[in-house]
Nucleic acid binder design. Structure first.
Lengths: 236, 236
DNA sequence: CTTATAAGTGTATAACTGACACTTAAGAAT
DNA sequence: ATTCTTAAGTGTCAGTTATACACTTATAAG
C-alpha cells in the first residue's frame, strides 16, 4: 500500500504490467441437477476449448462490479448472487502474460429460457459431475467453488438463490444432495427444513415429477433475515 | 479472461495502471488477550497515522508469496499462518492512485521477543478491543478479519496457530473467549476440547497465573489431521 | 379398477448440549 | 505452623437434538 505509487508504477510494473481479471463460476439448478455454465472459446489462444467466463477489471469499477458487468456482457444474465472466491495469482498461470484473476462464484435459478438463452453466447450448461477439461487453472477454480459451496450451504440457505420462487421440498432436497454429494433421509430433511420456519406452504402442487404431485413452497425472506440476526444455525 | 492481453494493456490501463497490493491483518495472542499488529507510518502520505502492513505484489510472485515477503521485510516475522481474506477494490479507496488490495489475515504466537522485536519496525501490538483509526479502508479490513476469525474458529482449531507450543487449557479458553467475545463455561469447554482427542497432556505445570498451576498441553497435529480427514466438526 | 410411483407422515433411541457447585493444590499472609 | 486466598480441576442430570426406520395416500397410466 501507498509507499510511493509513482515509484511503484515505474519500478515494479514498467514494461511488464500485472493485469487484473475476474472469472465467474456460475452454478445453476434445473430442478434436478446442479449445473455449471461454460463457454467455448471462439478466438485464439485456446480456440475451441472450454472456459469459465472472465475478463479484465476496468479502472473505474471494483471487482464485484466487474464480475456483474462481465457476466451480463457475456450472457445477458444480471442481478444474480455473486460472491468472491479468492485470487488465483500464480505468475505463470496464463502463458499470455501476468494476469491475476479474482474468481467469483455465482448462484442462479435456471428457468427454461436460461437454458436456451446462453446458447446465443456460445455457452452451455454442464452437469457438475461431468465437467470437461478447462483452460488455464479453471478446473481448480471450479473445484474450490464446489468446496466453498458445500461449506457455505451449511450456514446459509444457499438453496434459495438456486431455486425458482416456488419450489417443492423434494426439489430442495435434490439440490442439497447435489451440493453435499450424498443422499439425505426424506423424513428428516423435511422435518428440519420445516422447523426452520421460513417456508411458506402454497395451495398449489407441482406434478412434473409425480402423479400425486408435491406441494409448492415459497421462501419467506423477512422471516429468514429475522432468524439470521438471532443467530440461526442452518445445519442440514 | 485472456481475450487479448496486448490489447488489454493498451486500452484498459494505458496511463492509469491498476496496481495490486497486499495488506496483512496480523493477530497475535499474548496468553491473555488477542492483539493486532499495527504500524505508524513514517512517510507521507498519512505520516504518523496507524496502518496495516502492506505493499505491492511483484510480477514474479503470487499474492500469498507477496504477503509472506512483505510481512517478513516489514517485521522480521516469517513462517506464520496466512490466509486470504478477500479483495478491497473500491476505485477511490486510495487517493494516491488505483490500488487494489488483497487482504490477508495472519495468526501468530506472541512470545516475549515478538513484543520487543516489532518496535524496531515502528510497529506496535494493540488490543483488538482498542484499535485506533487506521488509514484508508484498513478499519474495514480489520472488522472483516475479526468476523472471519470468529467463523473459522468454529470449524478449524485456529487456536493452535495462536498459542505457543505448550499451553494450558485456561489459556486456550481465554483465546476462544477473545475470539468469540463471550464467556464460556470452564467445565464444558474442558470437556469438549478434551473429547476432540488431539490434546497431549504433559507432566509440567504453568504457574504464571495461579498458585496451584495448570497442566501444560501440546497439540498433536497428526491426530488432528487424521480427524479432519474423517470430517471433524470443531464446535466450541 | 388395478397398478405403479413419488409424496407425505411419526416415533423411539441414542447422542449431545448446557447448566450447575464443590474439592484441591500451593503460595502468601499471619 | 496454621489459615487464607486463588485459580485449577472434576461429574451429573435434564433437556434438546439427531438419526434410523415403514407404512399410507394421491393420482395418472394402463
Amino acid at each position: 500500500m501507498i509507499k510511493d505509487i509513482t515509484k511503484a508504477k515505474k519500478s515494479i510494473y514498467e514494461g511488464a504490467p500485472l493485469l487484473v481479471a475476474v472469472d465467474c463460476i456460475v452454478f445453476g439448478f434445473d430442478k434436478e441437477r446442479l449445473k455449471l455454465l461454460l463457454f467455448k472459446r471462439k478466438v485464439a489462444p485456446f480456440m475451441d476449448e472450454w472456459s469459465l467466463i472472465g475478463s479484465f477489471v476496468k479502472v473505474d469499477e471494483n471487482v464485484s462490479e466487474a464480475a456483474h458487468r462481465i457476466l451480463h456482457e457475456s450472457t445477458g444474465i444480471s442481478g444474480i448472487f455473486l460472491s468472491e472466491l479468492g485470487s488465483f495469482s500464480n505468475p505463470s498461470r496464463d502463458p499470455g502474460g501476468r494476469v491475476l484473476s479474482i474468481a467469483h462464484y455465482a448462484l442462479m435459478r435456471l428457468e427454461e429460457q436460461d437454458l436456451q438463452a446462453v446458447a446465443n453466447f456460445q455457452a452451455q450448461w454442464f452437469d457438475v459431475e461431468a465437467i470437461p477439461d478447462l483452460v488455464l487453472d479453471h478446473n481448480e477454480m471450479v473445484a474450490q467453488s464446489l468446496a466453498r459451496l458445500k461449506v457455505n450451504a451449511h450456514s446459509h440457505p444457499i438453496g434459495f438463490e438456486l431455486l425458482s420462487e416456488k419450489f417443492t421440498i423434494p426439489q430442495l432436497q435434490l439440490l442439497y444432495e447435489a451440493i453435499f454429494q450424498q443422499k439425505l433421509d426424506r423424513r428428516n430433511f423435511r422435518k428440519k427444513i420445516k422447523a426452520m420456519g421460513f417456508l411458506e406452504k402454497l395451495d398449489e402442487k407441482d406434478k412434473s415429477s409425480s402423479k400425486k404431485g408435491a406441494y409448492l413452497y415459497r421462501f419467506n425472506k423477512e422471516e429468514y433475515e429475522k432468524l439470521m440476526k438471532e443467530g440461526l444455525n442452518f445445519v442440514i
